[in-house]
Design a protein around this nucleic acid. Structure first.
Lengths: 225, 225
DNA sequence: GGGATTCCGTACGTTAGCGTACATACAGCG
DNA sequence: CGCTGTATGTACGCTAACGTACGGAATCCC
């Protein structure tokens, strides 16, 4: 019933203690959980939902630096002793999550060494993911990056089909809408995906993996280790 | 004598305990402290030295994601429960540092809540720095990014002059050497810097701040808060 | 079912940065 | 003093992506 793998990794006792404080919620597409500089009111452990961390630049431009699914959590700054987020957290895929009020969470966190260990380790993989994404955005072309992004999403939602417009993908990848359209066309012509009006279907996962840059594998291996 | 601000912030008792375990070292330009996937043998708290964190892509391309001076430390993965670094740590400015063997450090770390608090907070600012750098590398032109890089270095070495070739800067900014040369020429013509054969002098700091992107100020404010 | 809205296709000139190659010039060293 | 390596200047064609604009088409909503 709690589908988040960070929580699932906890031993029975700690796990049951925590459950009491959680509130199941349904996150809807486009919802903004935090803005930069804003106080973090709740932490979220996604189940079937998907949350993007976005860095903002020059007011309007956005770039995804991290992607959080059932393998992660939002509200990392709390764990590190800060009350505010440095980035925007945006619900990118509607679905379930378990949330907890920040103060309650911090009490539980301080009480459970096992939870601390899990979350610190998670933070390391998140940092590594952010670093790799930075290099990827710098060196690889849009088509490869789009393929990577679709694969990462595919991994987390565990479905071949998800809702996602080109416009939105542009904000994630930090490129124009038209740039996404061209890359998506190329992938569609190669029969790796198909799409229509905000509805994307992964047709050939292996093909996508061949079309993307090594960054995908590098980040995935880090999560699995 | 220990010039690192993370250490200087510790209260007297904890501070003196720690000092015993430190070994003062001189880091020389170009030295590689860690490679990705490699076990971390020592942690380093820079004094006058400067260490870059580089993400590698496609074997040969490099991109700086973090810059560590007297306000930081290397070996963050240890603090988060990992023994290996995910990035390359390269000495970018020769100078002093205090180092400690990984095992010794971890014992001290577990023993000192105050040290834990300091370092976790540092990790948050480092993450924010990496995120902002990612967006900066995506959206801003080389000239602005070069100005930012020079300012960040200037802040940390506390000297108007430092050694740095265009080739090397290319690896930091993830661009060709020629790209750096063009950007540096532009800054020199505007009398903001002067340079010659690996020797860069900051002439007009305020001018540089006007020439760079807002990212510089954003990251700086985070460190000061 | 008509109108508005959202989403995608296409097009055109512009530009930053790429890859590469070669020329110059200073610096240290024997 | 000349040699050799390292650092910087310059040049040229090329391409990915930009900014912008407009048309078509599916979907939603009264």
């Amino acid at each position: 019933m709690i589908e988040n793998s960070l929580l699932a990794a906890l031993p029975g006792a700690a796990y049951r203690r925590l459950l009491a404080g959680f509130e199941p919620v349904d996150l809807s597409f486009g919802e903004i959980l935090y803005e930069p500089g804003q106080t973090i009111s709740h932490v979220y452990f996604p189940g079937s939902s998907l949350v993007s961390l976005l860095t903002l630049a020059d007011g309007h431009l956005a770039l995804e630096v991290g992607l959080i699914g059932r393998d992660g959590m939002t509200g990392v700054p709390l764990v590190l002793g800060f009350k505010e987020s440095a980035v925007r957290a945006l619900v990118q895929g509607a679905g379930t999550a378990s949330r907890m009020e920040a103060g309650v969470f911090m009490r539980e966190f301080r009480r459970s060494p096992r939870l601390q260990r899990e979350l610190y380790r998670y933070i390391h993989t998140l940092m590594a993911q952010i670093s790799q994404t930075a290099a990827c955005n710098r060196f690889h072309v849009v088509e490869q990056r789009l393929a990577r992004w679709l694969l990462m999403t595919h991994d987390r939602v565990k479905a071949d089909r998800f809702r996602m417009t080109h416009e939105f993908l542009g904000h994630m990848l930090g490129v124009r809408r038209v740039g996404v359209t061209k890359a998506a066309q190329a992938l569609q012509q190669r029969k790796l995906i198909s799409y229509s009006r905000g509805d994307i279907t992964v047709l050939d996962r292996a093909g996508l993996e061949a079309a993307t840059c090594p960054c995908y594998g590098i980040v995935k291996d880090m999560h699995d280790t």
